[in-house]
Structure formats: structure tokens, C-alpha cells
């Protein structure tokens, strides 16, 4: 019981860290920093998954934690860093309009997320059930980040952060999806980043920058 109690406390702490990182991502200008934050988010995910696996003694979850470590802490940030270097965009920063307003919208989203997660938390039997709200908040905040950013790379980091939120939701609500599905999702994610990498080069070649305002000429008409 004591062990479980401590684990639950620790998990809540980690979840809070996850939420904090999501907010930090909303306000970061430099792409480089964002990638680092993304890697941190991955490591917290790794730790929390390990903790859940230990507490619930589920070997399957250890594998999925290992997958997180390999994919989200090592491979993806490495690919992103490399891409940035190759594109000569590693010191790019983007002007952000109205950070306080974005933060306020973010706060509203968090409250909304907790409201939405309420019925699920009530039904869940996992020790992590109280963090489902946070997982949903991470998803929504990443979504907000994708909407407010103007650089292709940041939008993609937002996309990946959203996937982190989904993964966290899966561990919180059900101790993770079946292993095969998780492998499939990881594969899709890897392919997605790979394709986006090719895509960045194509965009860069055509427009000489990764700014998304070049990509807003097609309209509904």
C-alpha cells in the first residue's frame, strides 16, 4: 500500500512536469530549445511508464517504456537536430505574438481537458487515473502550439508532442495499448518524421525557408 501510494505521488509529480513542459513549449522561440524540451518530455514519459510498469508489475509496459526511450528520447530528437543542421536552421527563432494570450488560452484548455476527462477517470481502475486529465491537456496544448506557430519544424514538434500526450493518455487510462499496436504507432511515427524530413528539403528548395506563410496561397475559391 505504501509503495503504491508513493508511486501514485511520484506519478502525479511527473505528470505535472509533463504539463509544465507543454506550457514551456508554447512560449519557446528557438527551434533548438523546442527539440530539447521535446526530448525532456520523452524522458518523463519513459520514467512514468517505468514507474507504472513497476507498480502494476506488467512486463509488457517495460517494453513500451524502452520503445519510448529509443524513439522519443534518442531517435526523434537526433533526427530533428540533424535535420536542422543540414537545413542550416538550427539557430532559427520565430517571432511569437502575444505569449500571455496564448498562455491564457492554454489555461482554459487545461480546465476543459480536466472536465472532459472526468467521466473516464471515474471509471478507470489504474493508479494513474487522475492523470488522464493532464494527458488530455498535453494533447490540446500541443494542438494549440501547432495552430499558433508559423514554422514548419515547430508545427511538426507540436505534432510529435501531441503523440506524446496520446501515449501518456494510453498509459494513464489503460496501462498502454496492446504491444503490436504500439509498435505500429511507433513505426508510423518514424515514417512520418522521415517523410517530413524529405518534405522539409523540398519546401526549403522551393521557397528557401521553412516559413509557413509561403504555404498559404491555395484558397477556397
Amino acid at each position: 500500500m505504501l509503495k503504491s501510494h508513493l508511486a501514485a505521488q511520484l506519478l502525479n509529480l511527473l505528470a505535472a512536469g509533463l504539463l509544465l513542459i507543454s506550457f514551456a513549449m508554447l512560449s519557446r522561440r528557438r527551434t533548438q530549445r523546442l527539440i530539447t524540451l521535446f526530448a525532456w518530455q520523452g524522458s518523463i514519459l519513459f520514467l512514468s511508464t517505468c514507474l507504472v510498469a513497476y507498480d502494476a508489475s506488467l512486463t509488457e509496459l517495460y517494453y513500451s517504456a524502452a520503445l519510448t526511450l529509443i524513439m522519443k528520447v534518442i531517435t526523434l530528437p537526433w533526427i530533428l537536430h540533424r535535420l536542422m543542421r543540414r537545413l542550416g536552421a538550427q539557430w532559427d527563432s520565430e517571432p511569437l505574438v502575444n505569449i500571455p494570450a496564448t498562455m491564457l488560452v492554454g489555461l482554459v484548455l487545461v480546465i476543459f481537458a480536466f472536465g472532459l476527462a472526468e467521466p473516464i477517470s471515474m471509471l478507470a481502475t489504474t493508479i494513474t487515473r487522475h492523470t488522464i486529465g493532464i494527458a488530455l491537456a498535453v494533447i490540446l496544448l500541443s494542438f494549440l502550439m501547432m495552430i499558433t506557430r508559423r514554422k514548419a519544424v515547430t508545427v511538426v514538434i507540436g505534432f510529435l508532442a501531441m503523440e506524446n500526450g496520446l501515449f501518456f493518455a494510453a498509459t494513464s487510462a489503460t496501462y498502454g495499448m496492446p504491444m503490436v499496436i504500439e509498435l505500429g504507432i511507433a513505426l508510423d511515427l518514424l515514417v512520418a518524421v522521415f517523410i517530413l524530413g524529405i518534405f522539409f528539403f523540398q519546401i526549403h528548395e522551393q521557397f528557401d525557408s521553412l516559413d509557413l506563410h509561403h504555404l498559404e496561397t491555395l484558397r477556397e475559391d
Partner: peptide, 22 residues
């Protein structure tokens, strides 16, 4: 075809469907 318009269309396709599928 790597035209500007096609890159834009593909980007939009990827992001919108990516978010949707999430």
C-alpha cells in the same frame, strides 16, 4: 510534381490528416 502549389497541398494534407488521425 514539386511545384509550390503541390508542396503546399501536401503539407496541408499531412498536417490536417495527421491531426485528424491523432
Amino acid at each position: 510534381f514539386r511545384t509550390k502549389a503541390s508542396l503546399e497541398a501536401a503539407w496541408k494534407y499531412f498536417i490536417l490528416c495527421g491531426v485528424g488521425i491523432a
